[in-house]
Write a protein that binds this DNA or RNA. Structure first.
Length: 425
RNA sequence: GGAGAGGUGGCUGAGUGGACGAAAGCACCCGACUUGAAAUCGGGCGAGCCCACGGGCUCCAAGGGUUCGAAUCCCUUCCUCUCCGCCA
């Protein structure tokens, strides 16, 4: 949610910034609604004030033992007018709020122009792409050699876009998770949290998945609906929902391993092969809650924390600044980390690190008390994958494969796999 | 799943129809006392919104209802706690 004050006083400027990401704000309609709301609110409050005064007078008269009847007659028709005014005000407030909830965040000034991923800007590269004297296999082929990556079993148990990992592959998956959690908790100062994988609609609204993107989510249970989380960002960021935190607890840094569930509506035919795009995947997520002036420093820091995982694993990657048109709904600025996949001969997203500024905080009413003013101010929230486990497993397999189909274990991972040098040792 | 008790400000907790946005205590902030601190004393101290800057409105889990008037009465939902049952 954007700042309602800005939306009131600075609408055209906001509309211009939102156009950068391809969102057209209907400023005329918004202005009209806002003006109607303002007028209705003033009218309603005047009526309420009148009602309160008369009710107080009745109370006093009664206490003094006076006759109340004439006062009651006076106030009689007020109730009806007030009821109608309240109803109209409430209706327009709901409409305005719904409108506000569907406006995406404004891109930061440093975000490059552009409409889609082709306009993203590469910021830096790390690592050397491995060379092979044969056509490198992709992870599906590598998995097929051992039958330990089983898409048919996934489809049998659930549907397409699910996988079953067994044996060494399941262990590799666990080792990657463990490595990341250890790194972020021991080296980067994050507190590990364990959270619900099902959340209520309010939580989904807090981070921006609802009301606009329900079709991307899996919904569970008919009455009192719950949704499977598409990312740990949702429950973890919402930890500060409806909180006013003291300045000295900031910054909050959380790391959280969860499965993520995505309906992948609208991605038919995309990445149908392999583990790149599944309905369920695991991820280690980083979340920071900071004071506003610290958030862009925190974005660089958080991104470097995610990069560190790839560096430890020796996986070549590049950092990309998303253009305005390619960013997610809640983000003001996003860096994607893209890992090199020899099987595809291209870089693929493995992490997305975003500063949401106060956008989510306003939806969540997450504030901190600024000691300088004594007033509550919205916090800034950031999140980033540190990293997506499934895609990381794919990257390890493809980058560390050898001609005979065996896969070496990156040095940093060996302690987590019993010291094995090859995955199948 | 059955029975009962509850949800009030950052926390504890009083309030069961009329001046209550809400006693008291804790915490916190300012001041006095003190070399400093503690203790003590005095004062302050929720959030959001509207405004003719005088004020006004809303919020006591959420949503409805009764009433001139609701934290207080009624209904629904959610949540917490205790006991029983069940279960990992």
């Amino acid at each position: 949610m954007l700042d309602p004050k800005e939306l009131r006083n600075n609408r055209e400027a906001l509309a211009g910034q939102l156009r950068r990401r391809g969102f057209e704000l209907d400023t005329a309609r918004y202005g009209e609604l806002e003006e109607r709301r303002r007028q209705l609110q003033m009218d309603t409050q005047a009526l309420q004030n009148e009602r309160n005064r008369q009710s107080r007078a009745i109370g006093q008269a009664k206490a003094a033992g006076e006759d109340i009847e004439p006062l009651l007659a006076e106030v009689a028709q007020l109730g009806e007018r007030l009821g109608a005014a309240n109803k109209a005000l409430h209706a327009i407030q709901v409409e305005l709020h719904r409108l506000q909830l569907e406006i995406p965040n404004v891109p930061h000034a440093s975000v490059p122009d552009g409409a889609d991923e082709t306009d993203n800007i590469e910021i830096r590269r790390w690592g050397d792409q491995p060379t092979f004297d044969y056509a490198p296999r992709d992870h599906v082929e590598l998995g097929a050699l051992s039958r330990e990556m089983d898409f048919e079993a996934g489809a049998k148990l659930a549907t397409a876009r699910f996988v079953v990992l067994r044996g060494r592959f399941a262990q590799l998956h666990r080792a990657l998770t463990q490595l990341m959690l250890d790194l972020h908790t021991q080296e980067h100062g994050y507190e590990e949290v364990h959270v619900p994988y099902l959340v209520n609609p309010q939580t989904m609204q807090g981070t921006g998945q609802l009301p606009k993107f329900e079709e991307d989510l899996f919904r569970v249970a008919a009455e009192n609906p719950l949704f499977l989380i598409p990312t740990a960002e949702v429950p973890v960021t919402n930890l500060v929902r409806e909180c006013i935190v003291e300045a000295d607890v900031l910054p909050l840094r959380f790391v959280c391993h969860t499965p993520c569930f995505r309906s992948e509506a609208g991605s038919y035919g995309k990445d149908t092969r392999g583990m790149i795009r599944l309905h369920q995947f695991d991820k280690v997520e980083l979340v920071q809650v900071v004071r506003s002036e610290a958030s862009y420093g925190a974005l660089e820091e958080l991104t470097s924390h995610a990069e560190k995982v790839l560096q430890l694993l020796g996986l070549p990657y590049r950092v990309v600044a998303l253009c305005a048109g390619d960013m997610g709904f809640a983000a003001a600025k996003t860096y994607d980390l893209e890992v090199w996949l020899p099987g595809q001969q291209r870089y693929r997203e493995i992490s997305s690190c975003s500063n949401c500024e106060a956008f989510q905080a306003r939806r969540m009413q997450a504030r901190w008390r600024n000691p300088e003013t004594g007033r509550p101010e919205p916090v800034h929230t950031l999140n980033g994958s540190g990293l997506a486990i499934g895609r990381c497993l794919v990257a390890v397999l493809e980058n560390y494969q050898e001609a005979d189909g065996r896969v070496r274990v990156p040095a940093a991972l060996q302690p987590y796999l019993g010291g094995r040098v090859y995955l199948d040792d």
